[in-house]
């Protein structure tokens, strides 16, 4: 199931209809609570697009409350091991705030840049990035195929892919690993 969340709408609904900026920690917490409520109604398997397109400013406190804590709670919650996120619509100033909080927590996310493609953003080492990109490019597959594509031993690939799956950047299916990506 694919769910689309327009953060600006959530802000107006959950905090104040007149606001267009995601600032302050209480606002971030209120927006995240609303998102969590929506996630709770989706069931255990879901892909959610988090859309920043109509958001004005985003400060560090809000980025931490919304982006970092949303990812952290999903990773920590075993009932949400098949809940994934794709983020889109961020401006450079949004990315400044988001990058800072992701690095602080050691997190990464899937960033849909529209016509510029999809990439990982945040705290991710080159080997993990390369493995994710290989899975993304080939449309998915088992660990041995990804290991061959990247040119590393299978055990090493398996460990990398499992780490990416744990971080909700890859999904695991019966056929192997699939990159989290926007679905049209």
């Amino acid at each position: 199931m694919v769910n689309h969340i327009d953060l600006s709408s959530v802000l107006k609904r959950s905090v104040c209809a007149l606001y267009s900026n995601l600032v302050t920690r209480p606002t971030g917490a209120a927006v995240r609570t609303e998102i969590e409520l929506q996630l709770g109604q989706l069931g255990p398997k879901a892909l959610t697009i988090i859309d920043f397109s109509h958001v004005g400013a985003l400060d560090f406190s809000c980025a931490d409350e919304i982006v970092a804590k949303l990812l952290l709670s999903s990773i920590a919650n075993p009932e949400r091991q098949d809940v994934y996120f794709v983020f889109r619509g961020m401006t450079d100033s949004h990315l400044d705030a988001i990058e800072t909080v992701l690095e602080r927590h050691g997190l990464a996310l899937v960033y849909d840049r529209g016509v510029d493609g999809v990439r990982l953003f945040g705290d991710i080492d080159p080997a993990g990035r390369e493995a994710w990109q290989a899975v993304f490019n080939c449309g998915g597959g088992p660990a041995d195929e990804i290991a061959a594509a990247v040119g590393i031993p299978c055990e090493e690939a398996q460990a990398l892919l499992e780490d990416l799956r744990h971080r909700r950047l890859l999904m695991r299916t019966e056929e192997g690993y699939v990159a989290v990506r926007p679905v049209s």
Binding site: V23, T24, G56, A57, D59
Partner: peptide
């Protein structure tokens, strides 16, 4: 936007 962000953090 970055100015706004700095202002927000300073006030908070």
């Amino acid at each position: 936007m970055r100015f706004t962000m700095a202002l927000s953090e300073a006030c908070q």
